[in-house]
Design a protein around this nucleic acid. Structure first.
Lengths: 108, 108
DNA sequence: CGTGTAAGGAATTCTGACACG
DNA sequence: CGTGTAAGGAATTCTGACACG
Protein backbone atom coordinates (compact mmCIF):
# COMPACT_ATOMS: atom_id res chain seq x y z
CA UNK A 1 0.00 0.00 0.00
CA UNK A 2 2.80 2.42 0.89
CA UNK A 3 4.91 3.85 -1.87
CA UNK A 4 8.67 3.34 -1.53
CA UNK A 5 10.17 6.65 -0.46
CA UNK A 6 12.70 7.13 -3.24
CA UNK A 7 15.96 8.98 -2.88
CA UNK A 8 14.29 12.12 -4.11
CA UNK A 9 11.92 12.36 -1.18
CA UNK A 10 14.12 11.21 1.65
CA UNK A 11 14.82 14.00 4.12
CA UNK A 12 18.52 13.68 4.68
CA UNK A 13 20.09 16.99 3.74
CA UNK A 14 21.11 19.59 6.30
CA UNK A 15 20.46 23.27 5.85
CA UNK A 16 24.06 24.14 5.07
CA UNK A 17 24.05 21.84 2.06
CA UNK A 18 20.67 23.18 0.99
CA UNK A 19 22.18 26.65 1.15
CA UNK A 20 24.98 25.57 -1.17
CA UNK A 21 22.66 23.76 -3.56
CA UNK A 22 20.05 26.49 -3.82
CA UNK A 23 22.11 29.61 -3.31
CA UNK A 24 19.58 30.83 -0.76
CA UNK A 25 20.52 32.08 2.68
CA UNK A 26 19.65 30.03 5.74
CA UNK A 27 17.46 32.92 6.80
CA UNK A 28 15.43 32.61 3.63
CA UNK A 29 15.13 28.84 3.91
CA UNK A 30 13.93 29.07 7.50
CA UNK A 31 11.56 31.88 6.69
CA UNK A 32 9.84 29.88 3.95
CA UNK A 33 9.29 27.19 6.51
CA UNK A 34 7.83 29.73 8.93
CA UNK A 35 5.41 30.71 6.16
CA UNK A 36 4.44 27.04 5.69
CA UNK A 37 5.87 26.69 2.22
CA UNK A 38 8.29 23.93 3.04
CA UNK A 39 8.30 21.18 5.65
CA UNK A 40 11.66 19.74 6.65
CA UNK A 41 11.94 16.96 9.17
CA UNK A 42 14.05 17.28 12.29
CA UNK A 43 16.91 15.26 13.69
CA UNK A 44 16.78 14.27 17.34
CA UNK A 45 18.94 17.25 18.18
CA UNK A 46 16.62 19.59 16.30
CA UNK A 47 18.50 20.10 13.03
CA UNK A 48 16.40 20.47 9.91
CA UNK A 49 16.56 17.77 7.25
CA UNK A 50 15.49 18.33 3.64
CA UNK A 51 14.95 16.16 0.57
CA UNK A 52 15.99 16.76 -3.02
CA UNK A 53 12.33 17.51 -3.70
CA UNK A 54 12.44 20.19 -1.05
CA UNK A 55 15.43 21.72 -2.75
CA UNK A 56 13.62 21.91 -6.07
CA UNK A 57 10.61 23.36 -4.36
CA UNK A 58 12.75 25.96 -2.64
CA UNK A 59 14.14 27.12 -5.95
CA UNK A 60 10.66 27.46 -7.39
CA UNK A 61 9.61 29.45 -4.36
CA UNK A 62 12.62 31.72 -4.67
CA UNK A 63 11.81 32.35 -8.31
CA UNK A 64 8.26 33.35 -7.54
CA UNK A 65 9.35 35.68 -4.79
CA UNK A 66 11.80 37.31 -7.15
CA UNK A 67 8.83 37.85 -9.45
CA UNK A 68 7.05 39.70 -6.69
CA UNK A 69 4.73 36.92 -5.57
CA UNK A 70 4.10 37.01 -1.82
CA UNK A 71 4.57 33.98 0.38
CA UNK A 72 0.89 34.19 1.22
CA UNK A 73 -0.04 33.67 -2.42
CA UNK A 74 2.44 30.88 -2.91
CA UNK A 75 0.94 29.20 0.09
CA UNK A 76 -2.52 29.41 -1.44
CA UNK A 77 -1.30 27.82 -4.64
CA UNK A 78 0.03 24.93 -2.61
CA UNK A 79 -3.21 24.54 -0.70
CA UNK A 80 -5.23 24.63 -3.92
CA UNK A 81 -3.05 22.03 -5.56
CA UNK A 82 -3.32 19.75 -2.56
CA UNK A 83 -7.10 20.15 -2.53
CA UNK A 84 -7.35 19.19 -6.16
CA UNK A 85 -5.28 16.09 -5.54
CA UNK A 86 -7.41 15.13 -2.57
CA UNK A 87 -10.55 15.45 -4.63
CA UNK A 88 -9.18 13.26 -7.34
CA UNK A 89 -8.22 10.63 -4.81
CA UNK A 90 -11.71 10.71 -3.36
CA UNK A 91 -13.36 10.39 -6.75
CA UNK A 92 -11.13 7.51 -7.62
CA UNK A 93 -12.06 5.74 -4.43
CA UNK A 94 -15.77 6.34 -5.02
CA UNK A 95 -15.64 4.98 -8.54
CA UNK A 96 -13.73 1.98 -7.33
CA UNK A 97 -16.39 1.44 -4.69
CA UNK A 98 -19.15 1.50 -7.28
CA UNK A 99 -17.27 -0.90 -9.46
CA UNK A 100 -16.81 -3.25 -6.56
CA UNK A 101 -20.50 -3.00 -5.69
CA UNK A 102 -21.51 -3.76 -9.26
CA UNK A 103 -19.05 -6.45 -10.10
CA UNK A 104 -17.90 -7.81 -6.80
CA UNK A 105 -14.86 -7.13 -4.66
CA UNK A 106 -11.56 -7.77 -6.28
CA UNK A 107 -8.02 -7.21 -5.04
CA UNK A 108 -5.89 -4.54 -6.68
CA UNK B 1 29.51 14.33 -22.69
CA UNK B 2 29.14 14.39 -18.90
CA UNK B 3 26.45 12.29 -17.32
CA UNK B 4 23.99 14.15 -15.09
CA UNK B 5 24.88 13.37 -11.49
CA UNK B 6 21.58 11.94 -10.31
CA UNK B 7 20.27 12.22 -6.79
CA UNK B 8 21.73 8.87 -5.99
CA UNK B 9 25.30 9.95 -6.50
CA UNK B 10 25.21 13.48 -5.11
CA UNK B 11 27.30 13.78 -1.97
CA UNK B 12 25.02 15.71 0.33
CA UNK B 13 24.51 13.59 3.44
CA UNK B 14 26.39 14.21 6.67
CA UNK B 15 27.84 11.44 8.76
CA UNK B 16 25.18 11.63 11.45
CA UNK B 17 22.45 10.87 8.94
CA UNK B 18 24.55 8.10 7.45
CA UNK B 19 24.85 6.64 10.91
CA UNK B 20 21.07 6.63 11.27
CA UNK B 21 20.50 5.19 7.81
CA UNK B 22 23.09 2.43 8.01
CA UNK B 23 23.10 1.65 11.70
CA UNK B 24 26.89 1.83 11.68
CA UNK B 25 28.90 3.87 14.16
CA UNK B 26 30.72 6.99 13.04
CA UNK B 27 33.89 5.23 14.01
CA UNK B 28 33.17 2.43 11.57
CA UNK B 29 32.22 4.80 8.78
CA UNK B 30 35.40 6.80 9.19
CA UNK B 31 37.51 3.69 9.45
CA UNK B 32 36.22 2.33 6.14
CA UNK B 33 37.27 5.60 4.62
CA UNK B 34 40.71 5.29 6.17
CA UNK B 35 40.94 1.87 4.54
CA UNK B 36 40.01 3.39 1.17
CA UNK B 37 36.69 1.62 0.83
CA UNK B 38 34.58 4.74 0.67
CA UNK B 39 35.26 8.25 -0.57
CA UNK B 40 33.10 11.03 0.86
CA UNK B 41 33.53 14.60 -0.23
CA UNK B 42 34.20 17.38 2.24
CA UNK B 43 32.44 20.60 3.03
CA UNK B 44 34.50 23.77 3.29
CA UNK B 45 34.61 23.32 7.04
CA UNK B 46 35.84 19.76 6.68
CA UNK B 47 32.65 17.78 7.29
CA UNK B 48 32.20 14.57 5.33
CA UNK B 49 29.46 14.36 2.74
CA UNK B 50 28.07 11.06 1.43
CA UNK B 51 25.70 10.01 -1.35
CA UNK B 52 22.92 7.43 -1.29
CA UNK B 53 25.24 5.20 -3.28
CA UNK B 54 27.81 5.53 -0.55
CA UNK B 55 25.22 4.45 1.98
CA UNK B 56 24.42 1.31 0.00
CA UNK B 57 28.09 0.60 -0.40
CA UNK B 58 28.65 1.02 3.33
CA UNK B 59 26.00 -1.56 4.09
CA UNK B 60 27.58 -4.03 1.69
CA UNK B 61 30.94 -3.43 3.31
CA UNK B 62 29.49 -3.94 6.76
CA UNK B 63 27.95 -7.23 5.65
CA UNK B 64 31.22 -8.52 4.31
CA UNK B 65 33.06 -7.58 7.46
CA UNK B 66 30.47 -9.40 9.50
CA UNK B 67 31.22 -12.41 7.34
CA UNK B 68 34.86 -12.16 8.33
CA UNK B 69 36.17 -10.51 5.17
CA UNK B 70 39.02 -8.13 5.89
CA UNK B 71 39.02 -4.53 4.66
CA UNK B 72 42.12 -5.35 2.68
CA UNK B 73 40.27 -7.98 0.69
CA UNK B 74 37.26 -5.78 0.15
CA UNK B 75 39.61 -3.14 -1.14
CA UNK B 76 41.06 -5.58 -3.66
CA UNK B 77 37.62 -6.48 -4.93
CA UNK B 78 36.95 -2.80 -5.54
CA UNK B 79 40.23 -2.33 -7.37
CA UNK B 80 39.60 -5.37 -9.54
CA UNK B 81 36.10 -4.23 -10.44
CA UNK B 82 37.34 -0.80 -11.38
CA UNK B 83 40.06 -2.29 -13.55
CA UNK B 84 37.55 -4.41 -15.42
CA UNK B 85 35.39 -1.38 -16.06
CA UNK B 86 38.32 0.63 -17.29
CA UNK B 87 39.26 -2.10 -19.74
CA UNK B 88 35.76 -2.25 -21.10
CA UNK B 89 35.71 1.50 -21.59
CA UNK B 90 39.00 1.33 -23.46
CA UNK B 91 37.80 -1.46 -25.73
CA UNK B 92 34.63 0.42 -26.48
CA UNK B 93 36.60 3.51 -27.43
CA UNK B 94 38.93 1.49 -29.66
CA UNK B 95 36.06 -0.16 -31.50
CA UNK B 96 34.40 3.19 -31.96
CA UNK B 97 37.63 4.55 -33.37
CA UNK B 98 37.84 1.72 -35.91
CA UNK B 99 34.26 2.26 -36.93
CA UNK B 100 34.89 5.91 -37.43
CA UNK B 101 38.00 5.17 -39.48
CA UNK B 102 36.10 2.74 -41.68
CA UNK B 103 32.88 4.59 -42.16
CA UNK B 104 33.68 8.19 -41.42
CA UNK B 105 33.26 10.31 -38.34
CA UNK B 106 29.74 10.65 -37.14
CA UNK B 107 28.26 12.31 -34.06
CA UNK B 108 26.72 10.01 -31.45
C1' DC C 1 6.99 41.71 3.83
C1' DG C 2 11.20 39.47 3.21
C1' DT C 3 15.83 39.47 4.62
C1' DG C 4 20.30 40.59 7.13
C1' DT C 5 22.70 40.31 11.31
C1' DA C 6 24.78 39.80 16.07
C1' DA C 7 24.09 36.82 20.28
C1' DG C 8 24.35 32.89 23.02
C1' DG C 9 23.81 28.23 23.40
C1' DA C 10 23.37 23.47 21.91
C1' DA C 11 24.21 19.73 18.68
C1' DT C 12 27.43 18.01 15.24
C1' DT C 13 31.71 16.76 13.43
C1' DC C 14 36.75 16.50 13.34
C1' DT C 15 41.39 14.53 14.53
C1' DG C 16 44.75 11.90 17.07
C1' DA C 17 45.35 8.76 20.72
C1' DC C 18 44.80 4.99 23.97
C1' DA C 19 42.59 0.54 24.75
C1' DC C 20 41.32 -4.29 23.70
C1' DG C 21 42.04 -8.40 21.52
C1' DC D 1 42.31 -5.89 12.68
C1' DG D 2 38.21 -3.52 13.63
C1' DT D 3 35.97 -0.86 16.98
C1' DG D 4 34.89 1.82 21.38
C1' DT D 5 35.84 5.82 23.90
C1' DA D 6 37.25 10.29 26.24
C1' DA D 7 39.36 14.84 24.89
C1' DG D 8 39.53 19.25 23.03
C1' DG D 9 38.48 22.13 19.47
C1' DA D 10 36.18 23.81 15.37
C1' DA D 11 32.21 24.05 12.32
C1' DT D 12 27.21 23.78 12.18
C1' DT D 13 22.67 24.77 13.48
C1' DC D 14 19.11 26.65 16.48
C1' DT D 15 15.99 30.34 18.37
C1' DG D 16 14.37 34.94 19.37
C1' DA D 17 15.19 39.63 18.57
C1' DC D 18 16.31 44.06 16.46
C1' DA D 19 16.73 46.50 12.10
C1' DC D 20 15.19 48.20 7.57
C1' DG D 21 11.85 49.46 4.50
Amino acid sequence: MEKEASYKDKKVITIGIVRELTGLSERQIRYYEERKLIFPERSLGGSRKYSFSDIELLMEIANKIEDGVQTFEIRQEIVRKQKKQDEKAIQKRMLQGQLNAQFGVRKR
